[in-house]
Nucleic acid binder design. Structure first.
Lengths: 339, 339
DNA sequence: CCCATGAATGACAGCGCTGTCAATTGGATT
DNA sequence: AATCCAATTGACAGCGCTGTCATTCATGGG
């Protein structure tokens, strides 16, 4: 049925091993032979049997994307990037959500991951927030000797990461608000388990301080990245009396920013005239909400791509270096200057 | 390092083959032996090497989700369902988007799929719309002798499908509008390549006809499921003069319905007072838009689950039967009765 | 002209598992 | 007690590939 390496070898008049060498781009093959074998392989539409190859090399040519992040948008883009990188290297991506019961502890997550990985031998793992911030998970991976790349905003342990500079982005966004004349800027924090939450807040704080203003705790409300938490948080902020109420709100992600816009509308505030709003992530909702949200575009696709790239190359190259990718501030209609 | 079947066999004092039989639930093993071997296997944390097993059985324990559907929300839910079903059966899901250049023809898609499948031996394929409606793709799969289940709203060829009854759902939704007193009901069609497009339209037409009304071509506008196409379509509908303008618009999906709400607002129509709007799919946007959309909830997760379930069972059971899953009409604020 | 050297190639085992088929066991039957 | 049968178990080959190591070949130096 399907051509095997033996078929190719026979037809090309060489040994299996030589065919194998050609297919794996190993050295010490005469150019003439190389070309010839390649031609035959193409002619026979030969492609190696992954199971057999895996058995012989104890590699699987599989990368796992493991996550417990509930943001469909985020995961999807990471996934697309990872798949594209995998394809370029002849790898495939298996996706393993770790959802189980809610409120599962980090140790349990590590266990769940362990049982998945015991069954499926993968050559590398891509970890997204907040899973990538769990020491237990990282330790488990280390014990298993499975390479991993964290899609995360900062270093943790020895594992390389691919991410963006959340702090600087939040800093710049806050500066943008300041430049528009806003002085009372509300901030809605993200989920406490995410490393990005602290970084974004830190960026906000630096910008406010650098402008010579005080960070007022009245203006900082805890959220958890969900639309609902944004509703609650924005109510707290918007119910402050006139003259004390923020003139701008910086939400740690777009879902919460959308909630701000929605609540503001219900409470009779016009965005952006009465209230400027900005978000973070540039998810599709940012353009659907009216007015469209000023927000930070994360290079999510690229993060997934780079993460998988590193994993597929790691055996050859030992250049597993952590890296920041560029972000972009998207200026849209939800922010206006103070009159 | 990792325990092999030989380790288990040795420790249990039986042959490898007996261990193999126990692990695969094959008959003709004494209960005592079965229990004993199972205990040892657990003790050693043994789990079979998929590559080896795959090589011996020429099965891969992999299911592929192949798609060219741009809706992240849709694919994500299908994926989650499929992954859950795979896990239950010891399978894993590999995800293969077929995006390549835009406007790629169906034959080219079939080719692209072929080249993916040649490299990765999978035991089954899940196909989503619109890919699942391509005869070329189905034929290619058949040639490869790879099982497939279509996540689709109707039968095509021999392949089983898992889906929902789009026509009946659209019928019921239209009836809902009629019951609220609407007689001028606009309809925005979906993308021409999707089988669901015609079915939803058919449901609309039956309901209108059954109510003794005429289907006016003025009220039916072509869309393509995108927000943008919804904007254009709703403008056409809403620019109709007073007394002729529809009092309700049924968009073939939520994105387009959200566009209707947005355009209506811009044109000074109040939803739902001046205009009722309903969508289809119950994506997150349906609850974010204000007013929240009355729409049809598709059992997307379940479709993915069932599709994978069939694939993982198909070898044993030959009950590969196509099935409709239940949908639900979500009544929300975007529709109101005619005064 | 012979041998050392390195490049190119091939023979063969073995990765961990399951399919095939043969061997063994423990009754039930005569 | 001898025989037979089904149930249970095991020996062994082989799935398609690559790693190891041996072999062949061509080339240049002594």
């Amino acid at each position: 049925m399907k051509a095997t390496i033996t078929d190719v070898a026979k037809k090309a008049g060489v040994s299996m091993k030589t065919v194998s060498r050609v297919l794996n781009n190993e050295p010490n093959v005469a150019d003439k032979t190389r070309v010839h074998v390649k031609a035959i392989a193409r002619e026979l539409r030969y492609s190696p049997n992954l199971a057999a190859r895996g058995l012989a090399t104890s590699k699987s040519y599989l990368i796992a994307l493991i996550y417990d992040n509930p943001s469909i948008n985020y995961i999807s883009h990471i996934q697309r990037g990872a798949i594209d990188a995998c394809r370029e290297a002849g790898y495939h991506l298996v996706v393993e959500p770790l959802y189980l019961e809610k409120a599962i502890s980090r140790e349990e997550k590590a266990d769940a991951m362990l049982s998945v990985l015991e069954k499926l031998p993968v050559d590398g793992v891509i970890l997204t927030p907040p899973l990538c911030d769990s020491q237990a998970v990282l330790q488990t991976l280390d014990d298993l000797r499975i390479d991993c790349v964290r899609v995360a905003p900062k270093k943790k342990g020895e594992q390389p990461f691919v991410g963006m500079d959340d702090e600087t982005a939040a800093f710049q966004m806050t500066q943008h608000l300041l430049k528009q004349g806003h002085e009372r800027i509300g901030f809605i924090k993200g989920h406490v388990n995410h490393a990005a939450t602290d970084l974004r807040y830190a960026g906000y704080v630096s910008a406010i301080s650098e402008a010579g203003l005080k960070v007022s705790s009245t203006f900082v409300v805890q959220g958890d990245f969900s639309f609902e938490s944004g509703v609650i948080a924005s109510r707290i902020l918007l119910e402050l009396p006139d003259g004390v109420r923020p003139t701008a709100i910086f939400a740690s992600n777009d879902d919460m920013a959308a909630a701000v816009v929605s609540v503001a509308g219900q409470m009779g505030f016009d965005v952006p005239c009465d209230l400027s709003v900005c978000g973070f992530d540039d998810t599709p909702i940012a353009r659907i909400v009216s007015p469209a949200l000023t927000t930070v575009r994360q290079p999510i696709y690229k993060m997934g791509y780079q993460a998988a790239k590193q994993l597929t190359q790691s055996s050859n190259d030992q250049t597993q270096i952590s890296q920041f990718l560029d972000f972009e501030i998207m200026i849209r209609a939800s922010v206006s200057a103070i009159a």
